[in-house]
Design a protein around this nucleic acid. Structure first.
Lengths: 153, 153
DNA sequence: TCCGATCGTTGGTGACACTAACGTTAGCGC
DNA sequence: GCGCTAACGTTAGTGTCACCAACGATCGGA
């Protein structure tokens, strides 16, 4: 929806892996945002719903760790999800500091919708690559990401 | 410098290429930002200096197109660069709407410093990959990016 | 000469990641 | 049992990047 006719890109940038990754991420982010916006959601919402669906009810802190979202941002995103009844928050009887967050049936339906949108986005995003190449890319990125997720330091 | 001990990540996320790309970009962005911050700069500054050095003096609009930065953001970033005398702005005698932006000697020195930092960042970022794999990743990302840069629509 | 396009600039917005501070609560060491 | 530390949820604020709308000035083609 933008990108005002880019001129040729400096090779100093185009050759930098960090630039390639972040720029590709910008494009990917746009596609994702557009896809999710059609269902009135954004990345945080999907990540939280997917995490809840996969691991079951959890505290907000656990949700944050698993989805990679900061606890303080989890609060805001859950407020929005709860307002639309995609999720319920109830105090943990066993630990009064905690909330137990649970996905609702409506939340699961919303998640299905989001997943459908995102599947289309993947296809759009990786359009120029063959299935083998897509697998290669996924493999390489996973390795890089894993390396920086649990720094061997 | 953060990442508070991530729990296991949902496979629903870990398998999504769009997620892999954006998450890897977050890590890359952190490394880049840290590297540049050490010289009191950020991404926009490097991109502008590199573009200027590669293509020579240019108008702000041209700079924006080549570096992929919105014109309005170019203004702010150039203000910061000009304040530190890394760049000079002079009116274009041939077109009074335009400014001609030129990189200074100090700007070139700063660019060298930034490039040095970024080279180290690339190595850190791609540490788990062999040279061949790094080339593969670069190739794949370039293809994806090219496809979304000039939409074939 | 008019009109549309371009240029620089200002002043916003939104998503995402992240930080600091706070009161509450749990659980461990002693 | 008591005190300290750590974890929890929440609020409020920051920085980067990308983007949008509007403006006056200027240019260039019809």
């Amino acid at each position: 929806m933008e990108n005002p006719e880019p001129d040729l890109v400096p090779t100093r940038l185009a050759g930098l892996p960090s630039w390639l990754i972040t720029q590709t991420a910008v494009r990917a982010g746009r596609l994702v945002a557009d896809g999710l916006a059609a269902v009135d959601a954004r990345g945080y919402h999907f990540r939280l719903l997917a995490t809840l669906d996969e691991f079951g009810p959890a505290s907000q802190a656990a949700l944050g760790r698993r989805s990679g979202i900061h606890v303080s941002d989890v609060v805001a995103a859950l407020n929005e999800l709860a307002e639309r009844e995609f999720v319920t928050r109830s105090p943990d009887p066993a630990d009064r500091r905690r909330n137990i967050v649970t996905i609702t049936a409506a939340g699961r339906r919303q998640l299905r919708r989001l997943e459908k949108r995102l599947a289309a986005v993947q296809d759009d995003l990786l359009a120029p690559l063959s299935p083998d190449e897509r697998a290669d890319l996924t493999r390489l990125l996973s390795r890089v990401l894993a390396h920086h997720t649990r720094p061997p330091v």
